[in-house]
Amino acid sequence: MPISEPEAILSVQDLHAGYGRIRVLHGVELVVRTGEVVALLGPNGAGKTTLLSAISGLLPHEAGSIRFGGRDMAGAGPRETAAAGLVHVIEGHRVFTQVTVLDNLLLAGYGLPRAERNQYVEEALEFFPEIAAKRHERGGALSGGQQQMLAVAQGLVRRPKLLMLDEPSAGLSPVLVDRVLSVVAALRQRGVSVLLVEQLIEKALAVSDRVYALVQGKVALAAPTGTEGLARKLEAAYFGMEPAK
């Protein structure tokens, strides 16, 4: 019987994935509901990036199922998932440095009819007036923070139903982190779901409805952000034991 609840836009079940011989994910279970912001936390090497890559089809998974918007995404590559409205913004603000900001965004809409593409690009730029002003500059001329905004904006061009952001704060100053994460809140208001991988736990929790902690390729904790003593539980999940005193 359908385990996923009707409002679950993404449901991941018993997902196993890895690189060649190296297994990284060992049976991950995860659900994101429509209009919900979910933070995905976990120590280094826990498999967060791997999980996002498996969901977006960048990395084929070995076992388990991924359902998005009621569709089974088995065998879907990044093109198919993006077209279905499941967009993955990879870590490290890897925008294309040799083409302009505008072209970066147009590329995100590759394959869409021209009129729609232009319209969606303008919509995405509305979220980031900072980079809209630099639309004719090369991607390589932007600062790290602006590149990150551009990367997020690229993700928005497809009008995603679910946006997966991988460490959007990495390498940014605190002010810029808040700026980027404010977009997450704005998206939530528009009914877009967000799956957010973050190192900055407090900032992530501030914008999220629920949190998953991934430790050694498994979900160690799943809880609403309002849960009592969440910080202690997270600490225990991260270190694998209670403090020594």
Binding site: S56, L58, G77, P78, R79, T81, A82, A83, V87, H88, V89, I90, R94, V95, F96, T97, Q98, V99, D103, L106, L107, A108, Y110, G111, Q154, R158
Partner: peptide, 23 residues
Amino acid sequence: TLLGHAFIAVAEDNYAARALGLP
């Protein structure tokens, strides 16, 4: 052309291009 930009994108960062849904 957008096609040309797509070539440049794939050449510069194949992984990012794939993640973006470029064919």
